[in-house]
Design a protein around this nucleic acid. Structure first.
Lengths: 147, 147
DNA sequence: TGTATTCCCGACTAAATCACTCGACATTGT
DNA sequence: ACAATGTCGAGTGATTTAGTCGGGAATACA
């Protein structure tokens, strides 16, 4: 599995922030409840998203988390790579500077194309589109993530 | 990482068998040496490939392993799914009969397309083509996998 | 029949990763 | 001062990865 709960939960959190944009900071506990993510785990994901500049956080009463950029400027690819690390499906297509060792993996040429296609598709999707899609399908907190 | 050493080593083994087709059974020790795979680990991979009908094995002196079908009839997709299980990149596109629970994952529509593209590409590549490619690039035992 | 060769199979293990929990601490509004 | 919030790092149980190991079964051959 290329994408674990890290990527899934993290994207859920960003979608939640996007849907509540302009309403001031959103609290971790609210995101956790609405998106059905364990709060103490969400903590780590928000920390990572903050380190990579996707969100801004403020402490104290009334604090919480906000998007640092417009949802239309946030690419799914970047979010997932922030949360999951490299999305390379097989070792021999890793995005390291391919200096020195030519890969031993004979399937490289096949996977290279798959990887590029994947990155292209994920680059083409923004947080704004994910929100739009969720709205179209009436998937929101109350509908899908609550008990 | 979607593909682990299981998939990598297993494909290497099949390529080796394909290159020695018609020369009688190929021994595990020879595959292991030529393809730089731990022999005791290769054991498990060959067992899996046999269970799924990719190879035939014979015991005793002069025994070994042979392809059960023509290399042109073996799709990379099938080999990898045999060795790795489902290649679904994210839980919500799993190929289970999607009865009941509609997935909660909002990225599903994106990943569905990526998954389909991946499976199409992997379906289009046969063992024969992998061998051909290796021959073109002079990647054989003596060239790449030995010390 | 005996023996060497080869595959077959299941048990075991060390290390890494996943999916969390927990507690101590920092910051801030009232 | 104090309560509400986020921040950070350590710890944990379950699962997966990448193997090893040893005993057993089948077979060719002398």
């Amino acid at each position: 599995m290329l994408i674990s709960t890290k990527g899934d939960y993290g994207v859920r959190a960003l979608i939640d922030l996007a849907k509540h944009e302009g309403e001031g900071p959103v609290q971790r506990a609210d995101i956790a409840r609405r998106r059905q993510v364990p709060e103490s785990y969400l903590d780590h994901l928000l920390a990572q998203l903050r380190r990579d500049g996707f969100i801004r956080s403020t402490r104290g009463p009334g604090g919480g988390h906000e998007l640092a950029r417009s949802p239309a400027d946030v690419r799914l690819l970047d979010v997932l790579e922030s949360l999951e690390g490299s999305l390379a499906p097989i070792g021999c297509v890793a995005d390291v500077t391919d200096s020195g060792q030519e890969s031993l993996c004979g399937q490289r040429w096949v996977w290279q194309g798959i990887y590029e296609n994947m990155r292209e598709r994920l680059s083409g999707v923004t947080l704004a589109e994910l929100v739009e899609h969720e709205r179209d399908h009436e998937r929101d907190a109350a509908v899908n993530y609550s008990i």
